[in-house]
Design a protein around this nucleic acid. Structure first.
Length: 307
DNA sequence: AAGCCGGTCAACCGCCGGGGG
DNA sequence: GCCCCCGGCGGTTGACCGGCT
């Protein structure tokens, strides 16, 4: 017996969504929430199949989606995660807030694959490609690259991201005491992903984090350490010291452990992800260590509480 | 200007697994 | 245990666009 189609296809519209359809779907979801997708088109007045509505919403209309190309850092994460998980795009996407499986899959197929091949890495196995047998490729032949010299993912090495963070820390010894004293007072708050919109917000690099001095800020209950410094808010009145520093893995780790949220000892890497609330001087961070992310359900977004 | 071609990505298709009856 | 429904997933398609000839 044949499987029942997901919906009655006769008379249903296919192809690109119109602005009007988008509007109807958004209005419906925002008013009613995500209920039974099969019922959505009927209730929202759409001539679409429920599955199509779900895809349109999750891949395009969701307010917490990031738009635009993946950053270099996100790309690296995708490569690392792909090395471990293979083509499990949804799993990979779950580690990149604001990105969809479809987006990552497309980006992999159109950009990353090529990039890896160009670097002499097999995108399937993440191992160095065998040397060309017949004719050498034009550019690579002139300047053959040894695989070990490349920035390549190391499938078994889940600490690569952590290591790069640790390298940063080596440059920051001078500031360590100051940083750590501030970290000690950092308060971590859990932020539900649905509570903020990260649309069109540039990824903030760790070196872009501004450190504000406690004595000059006026924290309500606790002193705090981080504020963001995207171009839009680097002049925030709370940022009194225009001192840039790069919080390291250890900094984040200590901050998390001090938050009391985590009971178990574990290793992880955190990456500041977005400046999503310049008024509150809060920065969004994400746990990115692939070996532990399975422990961390959906609560991957954190906020280093600002003033 | 027109046609071709390759790249990109939104959308679709078919399968699978979980949950409920 | 079986069936059905539903949502989720990964692979694939095809429309669109820009660059090139």
């Amino acid at each position: 017996m044949g499987r029942q189609p997901c919906c009655e296809k006769v008379g249903l519209k296919k192809g690109p969504w119109t602005a009007e359809e988008d509007k109807r779907l958004i209005t419906f979801i925002l008013t009613n929430g995500q209920c039974c997708w099969r019922a959505v088109p009927k209730l929202a007045g759409l001539l679409r199949c429920g599955k199509s509505c779900r895809l349109r919403w999750t891949n395009y209309l969701r307010p917490d989606l990031k738009r635009g190309l993946l950053s270099e850092y996100e790309e690296k994460m995708v490569i690392d995660l792909h090395a471990q998980l293979g083509n499990r795009w949804s799993k990979i996407a779950s580690h990149l807030p604001g990105r969809t499986d479809n987006e990552i899959k497309n980006h992999w197929n159109t950009h990353i694959k090529k990039k890896l091949r160009k670097m002499g890495i097999d995108p399937l196995t993440h191992k160095p490609l065998p040397p060309p047998t017949t004719e050498p490729p034009p550019e690579e032949a002139a300047e053959p690259k040894r695989p070990e010299e490349e920035v390549q993912p190391r499938p078994a090495d889940t600490n690569s991201l952590q290591e790069s963070a640790m390298m940063e820390s080596a440059e920051l010894d001078n500031n360590e005491d100051k940083i750590m004293s501030l970290i000690d007072s950092t308060e971590l708050l859990f932020v539900n992903n649905s509570d903020f919109c990260i649309d069109e917000i540039p990824v903030i690099e760790s070196h872009e984090i501004l450190l504000s001095s406690n004595e000059n800020s006026s924290p309500p209950s606790s002193s705090s350490s981080f504020s963001s410094s995207s171009s839009s808010n680097s002049s925030s009145s709370n940022v009194v010291e225009d001192v840039q520093f790069s919080p390291t893995f250890d900094d984040y780790y200590s901050a998390i452990m001090n938050s009391g949220f985590w009971d178990d000892d574990f290793s992880c890497t955190l990456e500041l992800l977005n400046d999503f609330d310049s008024e509150m001087n809060t920065v969004n961070a994400v746990v990115v260590e692939p070996s532990v992310v399975n422990m961390i359900a959906d609560e991957e977004s954190w906020r280093f509480n600002g003033m």
